[in-house]
């Protein structure tokens, strides 16, 4: 009897914390396979750094998916914002610099990139909220616009030779803790506060759960939708800045495919495509679960072709169970 109850309880626990269980399971598996090597601080630090920029994208698209939206423009918007940031941080003596001969204070690349990201988010939000375009189509369009703008702005060239101060934004660390990890913690905390402790956050969930009902209960659905895409855009702007700073360059390939990584991560983290469900902790665990899979396979020297295969299966399996869970509920 006791045993059965225990089993039931643990089942319940497992279903409630699927994403956590998966994460811990994978972590244990990897540590066994690598005889503990993968759990050393250096390895964990590598993993955290590798996933930090994606975390920003995931937090942004996670909020959007909670409102039952989607954003396909992430990769190219991050690419654009990274290029914008990089262009204002090039060494002035670099002959092929976009603004050759000029140097800007450190704040300029950051503000420019965040503004570019925010504007793109606002544009997406406007199309979706007021233009009534389906998010899939609106962001598909803006994805191509972002790509075009990036190519025009950079003339398709690599934006390289960035100054050390700018690179230190991402490459620096406080004691043993890399800056990037600190930024992620701050961003996750802010998004958590917005989602859980503001009226607006509650509205996001309400809109995702049932937009009609939300409207009837007095929520300004259009305004809130526009805000959520703008917030996401700002996060992509930060992601672009950090990525350019980390790599010391930006080019037209930077962040390509990041939308898929971010969407997959938050989905694995339990943010439901049916809207109205998801948490910051889930998003972050999702990001690090996908990261762990990437990192683990790379650590174990798995052929890159197989890595893609395994990642694809994991995404499909996660969404399959997610859909089943909510199909049963309704």
């Amino acid at each position: 009897m006791e045993m059965k109850k225990l089993l039931n309880d643990s089942k319940k626990l497992a279903s409630q914390y699927t994403t956590w269980v998966t994460f811990v399971g994978l972590l244990l598996l990897l540590s066994v396979l690598t005889k503990g090597n993968a759990l050393r601080w250096n390895s964990i630090r590598n993993l955290l750094i590798a996933e930090s920029v994606r975390s920003f994208a995931a937090l942004g698209v996670g909020m959007i998916i909670i409102t039952k939206g989607i954003d396909l423009s992430i990769g190219y918007v991050v690419c654009l914002t990274a290029s914008v940031a990089a262009s204002f941080a090039q060494n002035p003596d670099y002959a092929s610099a976009i603004y050759a001969g000029q140097s800007f204070p450190l704040i300029v690349p950051v503000v420019a990139a965040v503004a570019a990201g925010g504007l793109f988010g606002l544009f997406n939000g406007y199309l979706i909220a007021y233009g009534k375009l389906p998010p899939f189509i609106a962001t598909l369009g803006s994805m191509s616009i972002a790509k075009g703008l990036q190519l025009i702005y950079t003339k398709a060239a690599v934006v390289g030779s960035l100054n050390q101060n700018f690179k230190n934004i991402s490459q620096g660390s406080v004691g043993p803790i890399p800056n990037l990890i600190i930024y992620v913690i701050i961003a996750a905390f802010i998004v958590w506060v917005v989602l859980r402790h503001t009226r607006q956050g509650t509205n996001f969930y309400a809109i995702g759960g049932n937009a009609q009902a939300a409207r009837v209960s007095g929520i300004n659905v259009e305004r809130e939708l526009m805000m959520v895409y703008t917030y996401a855009g700002i996060l992509y702007g930060i992601a672009g800045t950090l990525l350019a700073s980390r790599l010391g360059l930006a080019n037209s390939l930077t962040a390509n495919g990041m939308e898929l990584d971010a969407i997959a991560a938050v989905t694995v983290g339990g943010v439901s495509q049916s809207g109205g469900v998801g948490s910051v902790s889930g998003m972050m665990v999702g990001v690090f679960t996908m990261g762990l899979i990437n990192y683990g396979m790379s650590f174990l020297g798995v052929d890159s072709y197989y890595q893609q295969l395994v990642k694809g299966f994991i995404i499909i399996v996660a969404v399959y169970f997610d859909m089943k869970k909510y199909a049963r509920r309704s």
């Binding site: 497992a14 998966t22 994978l26 174990l300 395994v310 994991i314 996660a318 169970f321």
Partner: peptide, 22 residues
């Protein structure tokens, strides 16, 4: 839901079979 965990773990294990040699 524990199925999900199980499937993921099996997948991961299958993966390891591929890369165990490595």
């Amino acid at each position: 839901m524990k199925k999900l965990v199980a499937v993921l773990l099996v997948l991961a294990l299958l993966g390891t079979a591929v890369f165990a040699q490595g």
